[in-house]
Design a protein around this nucleic acid. Structure first.
Lengths: 145, 145
DNA sequence: AAATTTTTGCAAATGATTTGCATTTGAAGG
DNA sequence: CCTTCAAATGCAAATCATTTGCAAAAATTT
């Protein structure tokens, strides 16, 4: 299943593997507590602090991206390799964005400002077609490497 | 200083005005506490909770944007009208991005996915030319917690 | 300036995330 | 397998940003 290789010096534990596998299965980045509860549900024994400790380590090692969605105050964690997506502010529907237009922009930034670009994050706030016809208001976003 | 008009029903207080003015003066979104300390320094009497309460109200009214920068766990607040910019991960230098390339992308999203795009936010992580030459090999340390 | 409504300050409460520490577990070697 | 030791875990307590209740103070309105 999960075949993400851990950095040198880190051991493979059932909790760690379970966390990575769960992240792999989810398109949308999850809250630490969601991860904890989902895994508990699946019968995996772990504690919330183990979840936090692992996510923190994975994030520092670049395998996981930690981010806050608009109007949320709990961090979300997702695999760094995941794709960009849109989230409808109304119904939370997810739409994967296939071609991130950032690459072209990146060239421009490098050229004009001389910056080395290490990564980016684009958040787009919108309402999907279905909800558009009803009422509307909230948002959301993406990650990339 | 050009003043921002408050939404209907909200009173003009010296604390509120000071907060807005400070946000207006800063290109980079600030932490609630920074705002509190800077204003205290300027001799304005206010409390941290007043700062939070105002930022929250302004954010709900759409005048202020609340966001978390990469590797930070305190929210930052900035005027909704501010421009996009680059931040060097080494020296924190700010470079304003003049032509946001998002407009073209926006058309595409609307066309392909049918989403109504309400707004967006782009964060780019990079290293400026000056820092690139000095510390590029030490970059990892700055990314770790 | 009295009446009414909003704001503020303070302190206490919250809630997410972190940490100290004793115990358990994984990987490596014998 | 069995031992060893660093790495990982669970639990509880600690942190730290942010929120909230309430009485007093400041803005508008009358």
């Amino acid at each position: 299943m999960a075949n993400i290789k851990l950095p040198e010096g880190y051991k493979t534990t059932k909790q760690r593997q379970a966390i990575l596998q769960l992240l792999e299965e989810n398109v949308v980045p999850m809250h630490a507590e969601d991860i904890y509860l989902k895994l508990k549900e699946k019968g995996i024994e772990l504690s919330l602090s183990t979840v936090y400790r692992n996510l923190d380590m994975l994030q520092r090692k670049g395998l996981v991206v930690k981010a806050y969605m608009l109007n949320e105050d709990k961090a979300r964690f997702g695999l760094a390799s995941k794709k960009n997506y849109l989230v409808c502010q109304e119904c939370r529907k997810i739409v994967i964005i296939d071609n991130c237009p950032f690459e072209k922009f990146k060239e421009e930034l490098i050229e004009v400002h001389g910056f080395d670009i290490l990564g980016h994050s684009i958040e787009v706030y919108g309402v999907c077609p279905e909800c558009k016809s009803k009422v509307s208001q909230n948002f959301e976003s993406s990650q990339n490497k």
